[in-house]
Simulated assay, not measured.
Amino acid sequence: MDIVEQEITGDALEGVLVRPAAGSRAGVLVLHGSYGSGTVERCRLLAHAGLLALGIRWYGGEGQAPGICEVPVETFSRGLDLLHAEGAERLSVLGLSKGAEAALWLSILDRRTAAVVAMSPTSVTWANLGSGTDGRNRPWRSSWTWQGEPLPFVPLDETWEPEPREDGLVSLRGWYERSGDLHADRYEAAAIPVEQTTAELVLVAGGDDGTWPSESSARALRDRRLAAGLPTVLVERLAAGHRPRLPGEAPASLSTHLHYGGTDADDSALGEAAWPHILDALHGPACGR
Rank of each mutant, 00 (worst) to 15 (best):
E215F: 09
L234N: 07
L221K: 03
R222D: 01
S216R: 05
R225D: 02
P244Q: 00
T232S: 12
A228C: 14
R224W: 00
P244W: 00
E215A: 15
A220M: 12
L246I: 15
R237P: 01
A220T: 15
L221I: 03
H242G: 01
R224M: 10
A220Y: 14
R237V: 07
R243N: 14
H242R: 06
E236D: 15
P213R: 03
V235M: 02
A240W: 00
E236F: 04
R219T: 15
G229C: 15
P244K: 03
T211A: 11
S217T: 10
G229N: 14
G210F: 05
A220S: 11
T211L: 06
R224L: 09
S214W: 00
V233G: 04
L230H: 07
R225I: 03
P213F: 09
L221A: 05
A228K: 12
S217K: 14
P244H: 00
E236C: 09
V235Q: 00
V235I: 12
L234C: 13
P213H: 06
H242P: 01
R243H: 10
V233P: 01
L221D: 02
W212Y: 02
P244T: 00
R224G: 04
G210C: 07
A228G: 10
A220W: 04
R237I: 06
R245K: 10
H242Y: 03
L238W: 10
P244V: 00
L234W: 05
